[in-house]
């Protein structure tokens, strides 16, 4: 395993202009990804996880959204300082991205072969014949049977899972060092989801890529991530190795999120009640000073002023960072 990170995001700040003011969508996010490792970024709608990914990719919707602070170091270069042209060279070749809905990412009027070959010819300078032969290999690699024939099919002739495989084939076509996957299985059935995650896992190993997987689903994180980043209201609230995070969640939000998930074991089934998190996340136009989760937190409202106080991400145990005055272990008295 390579310990030098291929991607290092430092104190990233991304602002989005809206009618209601400037939204601090990403507010001081730092994490790194090594080759051969998977970082899972998990959080609910509006927490800033997709904006983080789009910032890394240089794909923020302009001019409303822009990176206003921090560094995005990829292979030693700060992407925030590159020109659009330089960024375009890196994107698609060294960094690739796949999205939730493969139908809207693929051009419905072109065969999938044309779309795979486009990337190969653009970045690798292959001839038509070379690109076609390589595209056939790629479709085979992502598990599409009869690849040579399927190259001439249009996106609508593929199922949702197969379309996502086509997107993955395009993404890995130039052997990227980093793959960013934003909710890649959210639109898919569970049986298909498991196979797509298996594929991403295998390709990460075979191509020695760093993988950033963005999801709202704790189950997907548990499946594929090595390191996890939990986001809430534009900030990282907890960061740990995946086994550590699920065994000892320290932030009250992480714990509440896990508690709100219905389980296959039943939770008392029809007669039980789910532990919902009351309220909603705060507005990021004017986020609360101090702890952003305090208004919904079961452990806040203490006389110690935890809601207003300084609330930095701090290392509780080696590799386990948390942004709260009240880590769960401190409250339950469970030392780890």
């Amino acid at each position: 395993m390579d310990d030098i990170p291929i991607l290092e995001v430092r104190d990233l700040r991304t602002h989005v202009t809206s009618d209601r003011g400037t939204v601090r969508a990403v507010d001081g996010v730092s994490f790194s990804v090594a080759r051969g490792r998977t970082v899972g970024i998990v959080g609910e709608s509006g927490c800033g996880k997709t904006m983080t990914a789009l910032s890394v990719m240089g794909l923020l919707p302009k001019p409303q959204a822009r990176v206003v602070g921090g560094e995005i170091l990829f292979d030693g270069r700060d992407l925030t300082t590159l020109s659009p042209r330089e960024l375009q060279e890196i994107r698609g070749r060294d960094i690739a991205m796949i999205f939730q809905d493969p139908m809207t990412s693929l051009n419905p009027t072109l065969t999938v072969g044309t779309q795979i070959m486009e990337t190969l010819r653009r970045h690798e300078g292959l001839s038509r014949a070379q690109a076609r032969s390589r595209a056939t290999d790629l479709l085979a690699e992502v598990g599409i049977t009869d690849p040579a024939r399927r190259l001439d099919d249009y996106p609508f002739q593929f199922s949702g899972g197969m379309r996502q495989r086509v997107m993955i084939a395009i993404a890995i076509s130039c052997n990227p060092k980093l793959l960013v996957a934003d909710e890649p299985t959210t639109a898919l059935d569970v049986t298909v989801q498991a196979r797509i995650l298996d594929l991403l896992h295998d390709l990460r190993d075979q191509h020695d890529m760093g993988l950033v997987l963005i999801t709202h689903d704790m189950g997907v994180v548990a499946d594929i991530a090595d390191d996890t980043v939990v986001m809430y209201a534009g900030q990282i609230v907890e960061q740990a190795d995946v086994h550590e995070l699920f065994a000892h969640p320290e932030h009250p939000y992480t714990r509440a999120l896990l508690g709100a998930m219905p389980s296959l074991q039943g939770d008392g089934g029809r007669d039980g009640r789910l532990a919902a998190i009351p309220g909603m996340p705060p507005s990021l136009v004017d986020p609360p000073v101090g702890c952003r989760f305090a208004a919904r937190c079961a452990y806040a409202d203490r006389s110690d002023g935890c809601a207003q106080g300084d609330n930095e991400l701090r290392e509780l145990r080696p590799g386990h960072r948390v942004r709260t005055a009240h880590p769960v272990s401190a409250l339950t008295g469970v030392a780890s």
Binding site: T191, D198, M218, G219, V220, A222, D223, M261, L264
Partner: peptide
């Protein structure tokens, strides 16, 4: 049985065991 086996659960140990079984 297949549906239940594919439904994600919030437990990395279970999810990793399932992947090995699928492989």
């Amino acid at each position: 049985r297949r549906l239940l086996a594919a439904a994600p659960v919030a437990d990395p140990t279970v999810m990793r065991r399932r992947r090995l079984e699928r492989q």
